[in-house]
Design a binder for these strands. Structure first.
Lengths: 150, 150
DNA sequence: ATACAATAATTGTATATACAAATGTAATGT
DNA sequence: ACATTACATTTGTATATACAATTATTGTAT
């Protein structure tokens, strides 16, 4: 990654705290952009892909919206509309829960599973490449430091 | 920050690379949420606030849109519309550049400067608090590790 | 001088983020 | 039984992210 001052065309040095926060933000953008470049040709957003993986993890069992939301990385994204878009692409099905009609049950379809199977290796490779410049020890240390931020 | 498995309600351990990327994402969200909680009562978004600070840094001189964009943390956000919203709030003024009519010049107003003065200490405190659990050495190490990710 | 390319900003479209409000359903209290 | 509260999802609104297409202006080549 470029030096921060060059990146922001600023002459003054920012305080270390702000430098760090901005660097976290920039790193996040880089990672998301990398993953998106894999998903975009398949017309999937990052969160859509994530929801598909969550549903696959249930091995055939359905999940209601809340359960999906709890497992999502970003819990503030709008799960209803996200699932809507996956339904339009036939990657997911929605049925009303008979026991509790407030709930809905969401399944991943065969088509959704196929799409995931197609993407898995590419996404894994992208994720590993993004972190490949760091050793296992460094990755663990990075995790530890980030976890200390609240 | 909570443990990742708890946060995502997953039983299986994710590979370290994915763990790290998700942790970066979650940390980023936490930081943004904290800063937003300061800015929101003043009806400013993070990027709007950032643009105001960039303009203040010019000490009275105007910037055209491209120059603003170059200095922004997120260069992909839509600067035209961002500035539009700041103009509506009278924090910023836009004038046509006479030398090159394709360009526009953007100034921060007195009202904008006052708003920044009001927010500076709060934002600084939030940024410092976010990183206060880390020592200077740890912050530098965190920066170093993040910079290794590309 | 005219055509063509490059530049600067704007506009359009789709999705995500963020949160408030509304809707419909179920559970609970009296 | 009825009202109230809680629950699960949907809908609405505003902004940001991301990128393509368009418009207007300027620069350049022949």
């Amino acid at each position: 990654m470029k030096k921060l001052n060059e990146r922001l065309k600023t002459k003054v040095d920012l305080p270390l705290s702000r430098q760090t926060l901005i660097t976290i933000f920039l790193t996040n953008t880089i990672i998301k952009t990398g993953l998106l470049s894999v998903l975009k040709p398949h017309d999937l957003s990052l969160e859509q892909f994530n929801v598909l993986r969550i549903l696959r993890g249930q091995k055939g069992n359905p999940l209601n919206l809340q359960d999906v939301q709890e497992r999502m990385v970003n819990k503030m994204s709008n799960t209803t509309r996200l699932v809507d878009k996956l339904i339009l692409k036939n990657f997911v099905k929605r049925t009303e829960c008979k026991k509790n009609r407030r709930k809905i049950e969401i399944y991943i379809t065969k088509l959704g599973l196929d799409k995931l199977a197609e993407l898995d290796s590419k996404v894994d490779a992208t994720e590993e490449k993004a972190t490949s410049k760091l050793t296992t020890i460094e990755l663990k240390e990075l995790n530890r430091l980030l976890h200390k931020i609240q």
